[in-house]
Amino acid sequence: MRATFQAFRGNAFRCRPTSLVLGVGLLLSGLILSGPVMAAAAPGEAKLPQLDIQTYPSQIFWLIISFIVLYLLVSRVAVPRISEVLEERQERIADDLDKAETLKKEAEQVRGEYEKALAEARDKAHAATREAQEAVAKSGAVLEAEARDKVTVMLKDAEIRIAAARTEAIGNVRSVARDVAGDAVAKLIGIQITGDELDRVVSSAMEGRS
């Protein structure tokens, strides 16, 4: 008896044994009491077959039996079975919904991971490009600086050489001018001018020109 009641779970309707006893008692008393009440209401001999009180005891008797039998069958056999099937379906649907929810979450997670990986790859590619560009720019600058330094050095060397050549040339011009001047003076006026005198005159003449 207990076991059958345990079958009512969740949404199923519950039926307590006490209420069952009470219900059956009421049913019986109601059915038995209804006989005299109807008998009092109906006239003894009527044309309508339904008002023939002779048939009342048998009908009430068989109604009691069939209704109680049906009540027991419905409440003990049919209702637990149907509620069980309905609950099973409810549970199954809830389970399936849960599963779908889990799968959806999983898919969502995978998608998130994929997008993250994609973003990372994109960042990496950007970084690599930037690095390469920077490296190229750096090496270019280094080469340029080296070239500029070399050119500067060469320029300085050239300037030094030019200055040296000029000094030498100027020196040569001075000694040639001294010799020419000494010789010219000796030839023209027959005076042998000493080295110091000649140097002074040549220098003043050259300074005057320049």
Partner: peptide, 17 residues
């Protein structure tokens, strides 16, 4: 159910209950 005693028995039982 076309028998008044049957319907009355059921109705009276419900009323009492």
């Amino acid at each position: 159910t076309s028998q008044i005693i049957v319907t009355f028995a059921m109705a009276f039982t419900i009323f009492l209950a």
